[in-house]
Nucleic acid binder design. Structure first.
Length: 574
RNA sequence: GCGGCAGUAGCUCAGUUGGAUAGAGCAGUGACCUUCUAAGUCACCGGUCGGGGGUUCGACUCCCUCCUGUCGCGCCA
């Protein structure tokens, strides 16, 4: 396979450093800080010179003397205290573009395919999906798509909350409200049903007792209660699927592996932990003391795996899930796309799972943490009345707002066309607003900025794509295998950023950070817009037109593929 | 109390393993549509990178300390 640009340049500079007498030095190649410096810069010489006690500029010269970038760079120079600046050759960039144009995967391929589990979405089936589930769902979906694109064997796991005390309450209320025979109707509004059940639970001790009784029956395998529970889960799951479909998220029944699935494994988990001497009985509960998390006074952290009443906790379930992912799914890497607030829990769970031998040492366990979605006031995002925002309603609002804007911008289109555009734009805007921020920080949800359609937003990228499609409508697609000629600075800049796609995909996969892809695609769109202004595509000689049309096509392929990895659609017109 | 995360332009955010004069977008000001979709492009304006120490040839980045915010810390998930 073709190496990414960064891999290629790092390799070559490192080889030259070795020949110049610094075999252990890092090349540290990165994109140039400023266009005047070139396209890339190698920063490794300064550190190497220090170790060898040499003059950095002299060492830089020696490195350049040994640096083989024949056919790759057009200019290599020393600058400042010992930077090596590299400008890529136009012919090289043209060749890279031609290659990517032939390849549906745009020259992207993983070095070592792995089996990767992505734990994502995981809503609580007792309630309706709300905005709190949005980030896990779309960040997880983007990561799963990206890893799949790289050639990894990706297994999505929707660890839905389908077990526990709430379900006793809900089945009890289903019977009490006389909806046992026709639960679908009663559960039309899941949120409302849950609220009413909760009110009964809180105000009527007899009902609360009955609810607890149903929990015991449920866990004891009582057929009548189990049947009701199954119906409840079924209906709730189909609600989720509607949302996934609307959201354009690739999640189905086959990805569901709920908490209840691990129920039979829980006694074994505790027994095995006990057998390995990892548990202590403390106040009647089974707990693991973890020295890895002890505080300054030397007291270890406590991790409870079984309550004093014998019940299990999500800690137990998560251990069982980790073991399942290792033993049954044979995962090399498991990503847990879960709220950052559960960070401590996961660090403890990972530690205990390894100590117990539930997951092998060479299996990566990563908590892909993300921050909270905030409102304009900087507090967690709520409705005006302070309630949780239902995800389904949020998506409807996104499409409505987008429809209003599309209608305003483009009155000529039919309503059906505007609806189609509004859906791709509205959903894309919601997803992109989230994905474009670093996942670990909290972010402020604001309709106006995400639908402003200016700057680093989904519509800006979608618009760049439609401009290209418009060119194709006028001139047709470029003919295959025509020469690509890079001459103008705007062409060079565009071809350069297009050649960086494999590096962008790689960084998303490595860091589990989709915002790298967003930042990259924004660069692509920006460079394309500049190219579009500076280099008329349809007006020059036939050769120029064919060359530029090919750059346009690769730009379109890159935008479509890159946005596709984020779960965002492109449009031919908007 | 202990621990995690965060504090970068008026606002929303980037800043990769320490590198050159800290970058985008929005907002503000000013240019550019008889010319491929102006949902666009260009220019200007805007910063004690929370404060203070330290390490280094070089610190937004690493270490220490303080301030502020936020989240978590034994039987919810």
């Amino acid at each position: 396979m073709v190496m990414t640009l960064l891999q290629l340049l790092n390799d070559r500079v490192k080889a030259a450093l070795a020949l110049a007498g610094a075999p252990d030095a890092q090349a540290i190649v990165q994109q140039a800080a400023k266009p005047e410096f070139g396209d890339y810069q190698a920063n490794g010489v300064m550190g190497a010179a220090k170790q060898l006690k040499k003059n950095p500029r002299e060492l830089a010269q020696e490195v350049i003397n040994h640096l083989d970038l024949q056919g790759i760079a057009s200019e290599v120079s020393i600058a400042g205290p010992g930077f090596i600046n590299i400008r890529l050759d136009n012919g090289f960039l043209a060749a890279r573009a031609a290659e990517a144009l032939k390849d549906p995967s745009l020259s992207v391929k993983a070095d070592h395919p792995q089996t990767v589990v992505v734990d994502l979405s995981s809503p609580n089936l007792a309630k309706e999906m709300h905005v709190g589930h949005l980030r896990s769902t779309i960040i997880g979906d983007a990561l799963a798509r990206t890893l799949t694109f790289l050639g990894h064997n990706v297994i999505r796991q929707n660890h839905v909350g389908d077990w526990g005390t709430q379900f006793g309450m809900l089945t009890a209320y289903l019977i009490e409200s006389g909806n046992e025979q026709n639960p679908a109707h009663a559960l039309e509004d899941l949120e409302d049903f849950y609220r009413r059940a909760k009110v009964r639970f809180d105000e009527d001790a007899a009902f609360a007792d009955r609810a607890r009784e149903y929990v015991v029956k449920l866990q004891g395998g009582d057929e009548q209660v189990l049947a009701l529970w199954r119906q409840f889960v079924e209906i709730s799951l189909s609600h989720c699927e509607e949302v996934y479909k609307e959201l354009g998220v690739d999640l189905t029944r086959k990805d569901v592996m709920g908490e209840s699935a691990y129920n039979p494994a829980l006694p074994g988990i505790v027994a095995e932990l006990k057998a390995k001497g990892l548990l202590t009985e403390d106040a009647g509960a089974q707990v693991a003391f973890l020295d890895e998390f002890k505080n300054k006074d030397g007291e270890p952290a406590v991790y409870i795996v079984q309550k004093q009443d014998g019940g299990y906790l999500y800690s137990t379930t998560d251990l069982a899930a980790a073991r399942y992912r290792a033993d049954v799914l044979k995962a090399n890497r498991a990503l847990y796309v879960v709220d950052a607030r559960q960070g401590l829990h996961f660090q403890q769970m990972f530690t205990l799972a390894r100590k117990a031998g539930f997951v092998p040492a060479d299996m990566q366990l990563e908590h892909v943490a993300f921050g909270t979605m905030m409102g304009d006031d900087g507090k967690p995002f709520k409705t005006r009345s302070g309630g949780t925002v239902k995800l389904a309603e949020l998506l409807i609002e996104a499409e409505e707002r987008a429809f209003a804007l599309v209608s305003e911008k483009n009155q000529d289109l039919s309503e059906a066309e505007r609806r189609t555009i509004a859906k791709a734009v509205g959903i894309g805007a919601v997803k992109y607003a989230d994905l474009s921020k670093h996942r670990t920080s909290d972010y402020i949800f604001n309709w106006d900025t995400m639908l402003a359609f200016e700057g680093n937003t989904a519509p800006y990228l979608q618009y760049a794509y439609t401009r290209i499609q418009s060119l194709f409508r006028k001139a047709g697609l470029p003919e295959a295998h025509q020469p690509i000629v890079i001459a103008e600075p705007a062409e060079h800049a565009l071809a350069l950023v297009l050649a960086q796609f494999p590096d962008a995909v790689d960084s998303v996969s490595r860091e589990a950070c989709p915002h790298f892809m967003c930042a990259y695609l924004y660069q692509v769109a920006t460079q394309f817009m500049r190219f579009y202004e500076a280099c008329p595509v349809l007006k020059g000689a036939v050769e120029t037109q064919q060359s530029r049309l090919q750059l346009c096509q690769l730009t379109a392929n890159t935008l479509k593929t890159g946005l596709g990895l984020l779960g965002i659609e492109v449009l031919d017109t908007m």
